[in-house]
Write a protein that binds this DNA or RNA. Structure first.
Lengths: 233, 233
DNA sequence: TCAAGTAATATTGTCGACAATTTTAAGATT
DNA sequence: AATCTTAAAATTGTCGACAATATTACTTGA
C-alpha cells in the first residue's frame, strides 16, 4: 500500500479513501482550516491529499448531504456561509429535537445511567470550583452532557441527525463567534434541573427545561454574532 | 406504467447527470420499483440508464445522505429495509419537527394564508362528502395540508429535512403497508383544530395538536405494520 | 457428505484522460 | 474609459480502464 499521501490522511486509515477524505474535510471545515464561504477546488485538494478527483468528489457530495458545503452545477463547492438566520433556524431545530430527546430519556433512562450523569455534573462542578480547565467546561463539557441525553433517547435517527449533522454546524458557529459570554455556572444549574426531571421520569418537564436551556444558548450566540458583525447577512 | 429508463431520463433533463439519476432513483425507491432491501448494482443500473458508473455512484452517495439506501465499503448499496423500530423513530422525529413547525406557523402565518388553508380544508371536506377521489384525500390531500404548515414555518432547514428526507421515507412506509385504516374524516377534524389554533396564534396549542395528530397516524401505521407482518424485524 | 482451502468470477474503489461548461483575459468598438 | 465580443485558460462533469476487495465455484481431504 502506497503511503504517499499527506501525513493527515495516513493517520485515519478507514476502509475507503472517500470516507477518509470526508472525515478530513469535515474536520477541516468545523475547525476552520477551510474558511466559511471559501471555494473547494477539486484539483487543488486532490493534489494536496495525494488522491485522484474521484473519491474527493464523493467526499464533497457527502459533505453536501451533511450541510457543510453547498454545490452548484458546473461551478463547484463552497463551504457554507454562517449567518444569523441559519444559526437561529439550526437552533430551533435543535430545540425541537433535543427537547424530544430529553423527553425520551426521561421515559427510558436507567437508574444506573442517571447516577453516572449526576457524577458527570459533579465533576463539572469541581472543575468550575477549582477554576481549572475552563476551556473544557466551556465546550466539550457542555457537549458531553447533551450527547449523553441524546444517546439515552435510543432513537437512532434522532441521534444521527443531532450528532453527525447539527452539532458540527453548531460548533462552527461557536468557534467563529468565539462565544465567551456564556455563563458556565448557569449552564450547569440548568443541566442539573434537566437531569432532576429525567431522574423523576417527568418527560414533559425535561423537554420544557431542555428547550429553555437551548433557547438561552441560542440567544447568547445571537448577541455574540451581532457584536461580531456576522449578523449582517 | 413503467417506461423505459432512458425515456424517463430524457424527460427530466437537469443540469447534471448525477442529479437526474438521484431524482430517478429516489422516485424508484419511494414508489417501490426498487424493492426495500434490494441490492443496487452499479454496473446493472449504469447500463440500464445508459450512463457510466461515475455519476451513478454520485447519485447513490446522495441517496445515502437522504437515508434511502445504506452502503457498506467494498460491498455496495442496498435500499433501506423497513421495520417497525425505524418507522417509530422516524415518526418521533416528525412529531418533534412538525410540532415545532406548527408552533412557528402560528406565530407568523398571515391572515391571507390562513384563509387559503381554510379553503383547502373545505375542499377536502367536499371531496369526502361527494365520496370522490378518495385516494387523493388519503395521500396527497393529507400531505398538502402538512406541507403548507411546514413551509409556513419559514425555517429553511426544517423545511428541507421534512420535505426532502422524512416525507420520502414516510411515503415508503405508507405505500408498503397499504395503509387503509386511517379515518380521513377524523384526520380532517384534526386538521381543522390545528388550523384554528394557528389562526388564533396559539403556538402552544398548535404544536400540541399537531403532535397528537402525528402520534395517532404513527399508531395506526404501527397497527397496520403488525398485521402486515412487517413488524418482525 | 461435509469442511476448509483455493482458484475463478464478479463487484466495488480508484485513477487518468477527455468533454462540457464556466471563468478569466484580451481585443475591438463606441 | 467603459462595454460588449471573442478567444484562452481553468474547472467541473463524464467516461472507460485498471486495482483492490468480496463473492461464488470448485477442489481436496478427511
Amino acid at each position: 500500500m502506497t503511503r504517499l499521501a499527506t501525513d493527515n490522511l495516513a493517520l485515519i486509515k478507514s476502509a475507503t479513501l472517500s470516507e477518509d477524505l470526508a472525515q478530513q474535510l469535515s474536520n477541516a471545515i468545523v475547525q476552520g482550516h477551510l474558511a466559511q464561504g471559501s471555494k473547494i477546488s477539486e484539483a487543488e485538494l486532490a493534489k494536496q491529499y495525494g488522491v485522484s478527483r474521484g473519491p474527493l468528489r464523493e467526499a464533497i457530495v457527502k459533505l453536501e448531504g451533511l450541510g457543510l458545503v453547498t454545490r452548484t452545477a458546473n461551478v463547484g463547492a463552497r463551504v457554507i456561509e454562517l449567518n444569523l438566520k441559519d444559526m437561529l433556524d439550526t437552533f430551533t431545530m435543535r430545540e425541537a429535537l433535543e427537547g424530544m430527546a430529553a423527553r425520551l430519556a426521561a421515559e427510558t433512562m436507567t437508574q444506573n445511567e442517571v447516577t453516572r450523569l449526576y457524577a458527570l455534573l459533579d465533576q463539572h462542578q469541581s472543575h468550575l470550583d477549582n477554576n481549572q480547565d475552563e476551556q473544557y467546561m466551556q465546550q466539550g463539557g457542555n457537549d458531553d452532557f447533551h450527547l449523553r441525553i441524546i444517546h439515552a433517547s435510543q432513537n437512532t435517527k434522532l441521534i444521527r441527525l443531532l450528532t453527525e449533522e447539527l452539532y458540527a454546524i453548531i460548533r462552527m458557529y461557536r468557534r467563529h463567534t468565539s462565544d465567551q459570554r456564556s455563563d458556565p455556572r448557569q449552564a450547569l444549574r440548568e443541566h442539573r434541573a434537566i437531569l432532576d426531571a429525567i431522574a423523576n421520569h417527568e418527560g414533559d418537564l425535561a423537554e420544557l427545561l431542555m428547550r429553555r436551556h437551548i433557547s438561552r444558548a441560542s440567544q447568547l450566540l445571537k448577541q455574540a454574532m451581532e457584536k461580531t458583525g456576522l449578523a449582517s447577512h
